[in-house]
Amino acid sequence: MRAPDILLSLLLAGLAAAFPFLVNAYWLHVMIIGMIYAIIAASWSLLAGFAGQFSFGHVAFVAIGGYTAGILAVSLHVPLPLGMLAGIVAAALIGAGVGWTCLRMSGPYLAIFTMAFSEVLRITIVTENEITGGPGGLNVPQLFHAQTDLPYYYLILALLVVSVVGMMLVLASRWGLFFRAIRENEQAAAAAGVKVTRFRILACAIASGVAGLAGGFYAPYIGILTPDVASQDQMGLVVAMAIVGGVETLPGVVAGAIAVEFMVEALRSYGQWRLVLFGLLLLLTMRFARNGLLAPGWLAIRRLAVLQGQRLIRGTAD
């Protein structure tokens, strides 16, 4: 890590800790939702951006994590933290299964297969309403009995930091190298001795487990879980967040998710124009700033900061 990165990290940590005291409860709520999306988008980014598996069904694992925790809590009275843990495990296992199933698929076939998986799951949740609450929703008990969202905020902040740093460590390790090797050229990676099968499945399992974690937090936070968490619209939103942040840097994706969530909320007062504007913004970003807005922006700032710093040092030396 270079000096500007460390400085920024410290600054961000301070800002994150103080955030609830700088804004009102509404923007705190938006921030919490933004951080949930940040976890989902970052895990999708690990799978699609680094491991090269463009999944269009990633939100299914959010639903699996959420519904596992919710159903266990509602039907079997399992304590929520235990249920959330079970949700992560379930999402990771099913994710590994899906990863294994689509080992031979790539590109659009993989995207459509995963989309179909998530649609089938959504329709099943809708139809089996005796267990899932169906479209009317599953009422999930609260995690904290507090009047404010503060405990939720610090919990999701911790979860976000742990999961993103964890995924970054994975990506920085040999595993991450294998992921990228498979993405660039599967045959060549296999020839070089990378266990392609194992690492494709592993990438799926890690990403799905992290998505399941986000779902497990989302359920008790919103208090009502509806099948549209696994809708294609949600998937598109998650992908848009990752793209705006720049798929190839996880902190960029996190910033992208939070920025997009704030934007979508800020557009709220535009009524039926809101999604029109959102669609338009997505189109313009994709069309004219394909590498995302935030990561390139940060690089530019850093370059400028380094330059200024050098000039400053030179100035005092004179």
Binding site: V239, A240, L283, M286, R290
Partner: peptide
């Protein structure tokens, strides 16, 4: 293929 999926997805949201 990623670009194609995303740009048409944005278009779909916009048109709908």
């Amino acid at each position: 293929s990623d670009y194609g999926i995303l740009i048409t997805f944005g278009l779909a949201v916009f048109l709908r």
